[in-house]
């Protein structure tokens, strides 16, 4: 298929989106990530039944943490897509990258660079 998506997206593989942890998400921001998104399977299609629902709840938790820290909650998002949807994966990567570019660099990184 050889679909193009922005090179700024770093993919970290997990056995299931349910494996993602609040700490993983926060650590990425601590290390200066401008944005983080979790790509899970379609709702109702989880091989482990509820992994993607759990991932969404953790993403929502981190949104609240970011808000409390004075950062935009839009810097983290949960997307659902099937593993057979290559074009959608690339489209989401482009969409999210566009969103983060509009938000600008993470204030964590900006403060460190100053």
């Amino acid at each position: 298929m050889r679909l193009q998506y922005p090179a700024s997206v770093r993919v970290i593989q997990l056995p299931c989106s349910g494996r993602v942890d609040i700490l993983h998400l926060l650590k990425a921001f601590e290390e200066g990530a401008d944005g983080v998104y979790v790509a899970g399977c379609m709702e109702g299609d989880c091989h482990f039944l509820t992994g993607n629902f759990k991932a969404r709840r953790k993403v929502n938790y981190v949104k609240k943490v970011l808000e409390q820290l004075g950062m935009e909650p839009e810097r983290i998002e949960m997307y659902n897509m099937s593993s057979a949807e290559g074009p959608r994966f690339a489209q989401v990567a482009r969409e999210f990258t566009q969103r983060i570019q509009e938000l600008g660099p993470s204030p964590v990184k900006a403060a460190q660079a100053a």
Binding site: K27, E30, V65, L69, P107, V108
Partner: peptide, 15 residues
């Protein structure tokens, strides 16, 4: 871990 990380983010953000 979560609280310490969140506080470190806040600190880094504030320089």
């Amino acid at each position: 871990g979560i609280l310490a990380t969140a506080l470190r983010i806040a600190r880094k953000k504030a320089g």
